[in-house]
Simulated assay, not measured.
Amino acid sequence: MTQYHPLTITPVERWLARSIRDPESAYRDWRDGRPAVLALGAMFDAVKLPQRLVHAAAGAPERSAVTAVLAPLGGPVIWAPPGWYLALVPAGTADTWDPTYASVLGPGAYLTVPRSDRRGPSGIHWAVPPAHARTLCSPAAVARLLADGHRCQGGIR
């Protein structure tokens, strides 16, 4: 893992922070070890995946199994207590999303986003860290994962 210097802001963090009017406030939060609160709807939306469905799709709650089913989504995914995964998807996804199994946070919503090197295991962290600026999860892949999790759970909501 790359060593994070508290004064360094990565290109991914610069891109994420552009979602708010004052990117410096996000930089300050990340420098101080706190997650930043970013706006959704302009640059990206977030699908709120129930942990139980992700774990069902993975076949186990272990980190390696979960990462194996989340990585093919193609973009970054945050884990947030008390048990949600938040897949960053293209802006506009909230306008067309079928609410079956998960909701999408879009325009007018905000998301707590950890520093790019925050990998857990506890507290808000990246289950799949952002690899590059503007790389987001495929909404279709997210929908398939949710459907798989629902099916693996025996169709229980």
Rank of each mutant, 00 (worst) to 15 (best):
P130H: 00
G41C: 09
A87H: 12
Y27I: 08
R157P: 07
A143W: 11
V12G: 00
V89C: 10
Q153E: 08
H132P: 00
A71T: 12
K48I: 14
H150G: 00
P82R: 14
A140D: 15
P82M: 14
E13P: 02
L145N: 02
V128Q: 09
Y101K: 11
I9R: 02
R31A: 13
V142R: 09
P23M: 05
G41Y: 09
G155F: 04
T67I: 13
S19T: 11
G123H: 00
P121N: 07
M43W: 13
S103L: 15
D29P: 01
H55M: 13
H5D: 10
P139K: 03
A127L: 10
K48T: 10
G83S: 11
L16D: 00
L53Q: 01
P139S: 05
C137M: 05
I9G: 00
L70Q: 08
I78N: 08
R21M: 06
V47L: 02
E62S: 07
A58V: 05
A26E: 12
S64Y: 09
G75S: 12
A17D: 04
V37K: 14
W84D: 15
E62T: 11
A80F: 09
D117T: 10
T135H: 06
A57K: 08
V89L: 11
W126Q: 04
I124S: 07
P107N: 03
G149T: 06
V12D: 00
W97G: 15
F44Y: 15
P6V: 03
A80I: 13
A68K: 13
P81Q: 14
V12T: 03
A109F: 10
P129D: 04
G41D: 08
A26Y: 12
C137A: 06
A57D: 09
R115H: 07
T100W: 15
P23D: 06
G33M: 05
V37S: 14
L105I: 05
V69F: 03
H150A: 06
L105T: 04
A60H: 14
I124F: 02
P23C: 05
T135N: 02
G120F: 06
C152P: 01
H5L: 11
G155C: 07
G83I: 12
